[in-house]
């Protein structure tokens, strides 16, 4: 038995890569569907908050990730925007991350036509603005002023129906930051603390553990955690997307990694006991 474990400990790691790759690909090829589980309270809280807002409410979304994190964050951004449109809310999109400017377009260009929403009336892309903390603080006083009264295409924000009655954070009903960096902490510190803006976050799974304490303390409305959170949100709005599509692969890959961890530990302890 010890010899088997000794050999396993010396196995070429590329075999493990191949097994993980197979675990991810097989559900796609076979159409295998595993249950994604019940939505976590952190995700449900954001869903419930958006659902509870009166139609016509204003939801600000900040898309602060690059293509490197797109696989995790884009499905949740699309699901949340789809939900906001379904509820009849207005969406103001922006980016504090340079690459976020094109990520915003990917989300809005897909979801808005599906939901028959009109640019400038139902939603707007204010584009990227550099200087994250200064922008967040400035928006507390004058949102249109911070964006120099121009959207991402150079059109005047002040003439758009979607911006009617929107002066500062007092007129924003919920802000959601989709982020792969530290920007959610700036929203918590400046927008939440100083202006009492309601903030929710959709973040990569790596970041989620750092943000859960802020949700438990009531500083965040909720936390959508990586692809799992996206799948939960898609399940809540009953519109399957890329999040739910990948969950079977996620489950099998996780089971395989747990198996490797257990196997590795047994091997380690057996090797330690060897005289």
């Amino acid at each position: 038995m010890r010899d088997i474990f000794s050999r396993l400990q010396e196995i070429d790691r590329r075999w493990l890569y191949l097994l993980i790759f197979a675990a991810v690909v097989i559900p796609f090829l076979t159409g295998l569907k595993l249950p994604a589980g019940v939505a976590s309270p952190a995700t449900t809280d954001i869903y419930d908050y958006i659902d509870g807002l009166a139609p016509g409410s204003v939801i600000l979304i900040s898309v602060d990730y690059s293509p490197a994190s797109m696989a995790e964050l884009e499905p949740m951004a699309k699901a949340v925007v789809r939900h906001a449109f379904t509820c009849g809310h207005r969406v103001i999109a922006m980016a504090l991350f340079p690459e976020g400017a094109m990520m915003v377009n990917r989300v809005l260009d897909e979801v808005a036509p599906e939901m028959n929403k009109t640019y400038a009336t139902d939603y707007v892309n204010a584009g990227f603005k550099p200087g994250s903390v200064a922008v967040i603080l400035g928006m507390g006083k004058d949102i249109i002023g911070v964006f120099e009264d121009t959207d991402a295409e150079g059109n005047a924000l002040s003439n758009m129906p979607v911006m009617a009655g929107v002066k500062n954070y007092d007129d924003i009903d919920l802000m959601i930051d989709f982020a792969a960096g530290n920007i959610p902490f700036a929203w918590i510190t400046y927008a939440c603390e100083q202006y009492e803006l309601k903030v929710g976050v959709g973040v990569t799974a790596v970041m989620a553990t750092d943000l859960y304490p802020f949700w438990k303390s009531g500083q965040l409305v909720g936390v959508i955690n990586g692809l799992k959170g996206a799948a939960e949100y898609e399940d809540l709005i009953q519109v399957p997307g890329d999040g739910m599509l990948g969950m079977s692969s996620q489950s099998i890959a996780h089971a395989l990694i747990i198996f490797f961890v257990i196997l590795g530990n047994i091997g380690y302890f057996l090797a330690r006991r060897r005289p």
Binding site: I20, V24, A71, E72, G226, L227, S249, A253
Partner: peptide
């Protein structure tokens, strides 16, 4: 452990994204 588990999930998610694109 929770942090590591989430990190694994994040990395697998990126692989899933690439596999979805390829397929």
């Amino acid at each position: 452990g929770a942090g590591f588990g989430n990190t694994v999930m994040a990395r697998i998610s990126l692989l899933i994204g690439r596999v979805e694109f390829l397929l």
